[in-house]
Simulated assay, not measured.
Amino acid sequence: MVKHLRRFRGDGFTLVELLVVVAIIAILIALLLPAVQAARESSRKSDCANNLKNLALAALSFESSRGYFAPAAQDRDGEPPTGVKPALATHNGITFLLPHFDQGNKLQQIDLSWDWDDAARSKNELATKQDLGGILICPSSPVVQIARHATDYCAANRVDPAGPRSLAPLVTTRLVDGKNGLPELDRGWDNVLQFDFLDTVPPLATDRRRTDCSEITDGLSNTSLYMESVAKPFMFGWYQRTADPAPLFYNGEENRSINSRFRWASPETWMTINNYCHGSQIINCNNVSQPYGFHPGGILVSFADGHVEFAREEIDPNAFVAWITMSGGETAP
């Protein structure tokens, strides 16, 4: 008996159907990916804001217990004789805040009578070149900073309205209020976090001012404390590494003997608002001691009442300056 073979049509996809399905999946992924990335950035931004909030609350806790704010940093010119304690040891203000955000054990390892990087008479160099558990690192930064003992958050001690590198052109064009010709060194340009400086080289000069909440006449919610200046020791923006006589990098390799000024405990990790780009933009021009971040379109700023705000790149320069000054008399932005 002859058996007739029956031909059956398979249940699989044809090539055209398969290509259509692949195309649909690709479109769905393309639509979903930005949403996933946005969600991740939102989470990173939230973590960064929480870091800054904790830093601001630590600053307020210090002020409450001591009666004055810790400085942005304390530094000096001149060295004492060998073995003699300096009249003012060099430290970043963040060091003084350590016990106020659960880092008191780190402060106990630091002898505040000696400089932050002293290795001869104390263990300061070892103690200040330690990871603080990421509390000073913004998760949105593309550069891993923990191993470099850096901070993505800095204090801005004042606004510089005059001089060769300053906001003078913005004052001239009235994009920044000149406060009726208020002198450059007037306290009206100061932030609450001061630069505590002592010059022991004749002619002697000092600025040992201590400020408290009562001096913030512009309002606690209108006066900044710490803000983003991220990703150091790497430099972003217009900064030219090759122009430095002691460059931070040699043939792409980091020169860690030079980058110390960017560590969280360094007395040079602070900034003065004295730079702008693109006509009047103060934020995200460069991160060499200037406001700079990696969140799309702006940076996070903490304030003297403990809240944190997102400052967009296009913020009015006068509004941003008003945030920095604590008694400038500006109208709240």
Score class of each variant (00 low, 15 high):
Ile135Lys: 02
Ala38Asn: 13
Ser327Asn: 12
Asp131Thr: 11
Leu170Trp: 01
Phe294Val: 03
Ala319Gly: 06
Ser122Pro: 03
Asp117Thr: 00
Leu204Ile: 11
Phe101Leu: 14
Ala49Tyr: 02
Pro99Ile: 15
Asp118Lys: 09
Lys179Asp: 03
Arg121Ala: 08
Gly279Phe: 02
Trp264Met: 08
Val171Thr: 00
Leu19Lys: 11
Asn54Phe: 00
Val21Ser: 13
Ser224His: 04
Ser257Val: 07
Thr223Met: 05
Cys285Thr: 11
Trp270Asn: 07
Glu63Ala: 12
Gln37Ala: 11
Asn318Tyr: 02
Phe294Leu: 03
Leu97Glu: 12
Thr325Cys: 02
Ser64Ile: 01
Ser166His: 04
Leu52Met: 11
Pro247Tyr: 07
Phe320Val: 08
Met1Trp: 10
Leu220Ile: 05
Asp244Phe: 01
Gly104Phe: 01
Ala120Ser: 09
Val84Leu: 06
Glu309Cys: 04
Leu300Pro: 00
Ala205Tyr: 03
Pro267Ile: 03
Thr173Asp: 13
Thr325Ile: 10
Gln130Gly: 06
Asn275Lys: 12
Asn259Gly: 11
Phe249Leu: 13
Met235Pro: 00
Ile258Lys: 08
Gln103Asn: 14
Gly67Trp: 09
Arg6Lys: 06
Ser166Phe: 05
Ala26Phe: 15
Ala89Val: 14
Pro99Arg: 14
Val22Glu: 09
Phe234Met: 00
Ser214Leu: 06
Glu309Ser: 10
Glu79Phe: 15
Tyr68Lys: 12
Thr272Pro: 00
Trp238His: 10
Arg148Gly: 05
Gln109Phe: 03
Thr206Trp: 11
His149Leu: 01
Pro296Arg: 09
Ala147Asp: 03
Pro317Trp: 05
Ile324Met: 05
Asn54Ser: 14
Gly188Cys: 04
Asp212Thr: 14
Leu57Ala: 09
Asn255Ser: 04
Asp199Arg: 01
Phe69Gln: 10
Pro291His: 14
Leu5Trp: 10
Leu97Thr: 11
Ile324Pro: 07
Asn275His: 15
Met235Ala: 03
Ser221Leu: 05
Ile137Val: 00
Thr151Phe: 02
Asn287Arg: 02
Gly181Asp: 02
Trp114His: 08
Ser46Asp: 07
Trp116Asp: 08
Tyr68Gly: 12
Ala127Asp: 04
Pro317Met: 10
Val321Glu: 06
Glu314Gln: 13
Val288Gln: 04
Arg174His: 13
Leu220Pro: 08
Leu126Ser: 11
Gln109Val: 05
Val16Asn: 10
Asp131His: 05
Gly104Tyr: 01
Leu31Glu: 11
Phe303Asp: 09
Glu253Ser: 09
Gln240Pro: 08
His295Asn: 09
Leu31Lys: 13
Ile110Lys: 05
Pro164Glu: 13
Leu126Arg: 08
Gly328Arg: 15
Phe62Lys: 09
Asp316Thr: 04
Val21Thr: 02
Val21Lys: 10
Leu175Lys: 15
Val22His: 05
His100Lys: 12
Val301Cys: 11
Glu268Ser: 14
Thr217Asn: 08
Leu248Cys: 04
Gly10Ile: 15
Ala26Glu: 09
His100Ile: 06
Thr217His: 10
Lys85Cys: 03
Tyr239Ser: 05
Ser42Thr: 15
Glu309Phe: 08
Arg241Leu: 12
Val308Pro: 15
Met326Ser: 06
Tyr68Cys: 11
Asn286Ala: 06
Arg187Lys: 08
Ile283Arg: 01
Pro86Gly: 06
Ser46Gln: 11
Ser122Gly: 02
Glu63Leu: 01
Gln37Asn: 14
